[in-house]
Amino acid sequence: MTSRSKLSPNRKTDPKPSNRLDQRYTYSDMDHSFNIATLRQVFTPEAVVHAMLGLRTKQGRTLEPMDPWRRALLRACVACCMLPMVSCGNDGPRFQNTDISGANYGSDFALLDPDGNTRRLADFRGKVVMLFFGFIQCPDVCPTSLQRAAAVRRLLGANGELLQIIFVTLDPERDSPEILREYSAAFDANVLGLYGTPEQTRETADNFRIYFRKVPVGGGYTIDHTATSYIYDPEGRLRLTVNYQSPAKAIAADVALLLHSSSTINDKEAQ
């Protein structure tokens, strides 16, 4: 960016830009030169396939060159993937939130609902689960996350019934089951508030890679915590992490995608 901003004033004052163009760009970064050769370098079939399929490179490793038949196979795959994209408009096969399919954490919990029943992830098979952690005294991020979750369910329309919203309190000492029940219901009847003992809460947060820490403030304490939400597919597998700023629309689209792919699989199994 800096080199670009240095270049632009030159471009304006340059009396004969065309004559000096090659000279200037021979040594420049790729993003300054727009010739076909460079485009070919950047948009290699592998890179395009990579971008379209949403394949994830491991630890920033770039994709290795492919042999021709493999490339052809991938191109065919891309063509197949593009077909539903064309027919369904904007619904691409990619998730808008971060795909963490295959993650080896956050696989289950055992916490109490306000009625005192133990709940596990398996209780919600067949539904997409959106789970996040917070505390009710939090005036900002937690209500915002709950409002967003409720908005996602509204956006899903009839499919909203297939989304289970779960709010796990990080503050079981202050968030009693009664408050948890009433507070959750204030956002959406579908929101389920869960709690555990302080030890269970710590253990669950650790299992879900949720950082939290009590911080003294004024006469009491507040809780610093990870504001990320998790999304599970109807088979109970952890699939996505959702940033606290991710819009409801993007989440709803991803949930719809998970519900759709799951029902497609189920239809095939039924046949």
């Binding site: 900002d140 004024g218 507040t222 610093d224 915590h225 990870t226 606290y244």
Partner: peptide, 19 residues
């Protein structure tokens, strides 16, 4: 009974609240 002026900040994915 009591009021405080707070500032909320996000540090990465972590929400922090301070008086």
């Amino acid at each position: 009974g009591r009021t405080e002026i707070h500032e909320m900040a996000m540090e990465g994915d972590t929400m922090k609240m301070r008086q």
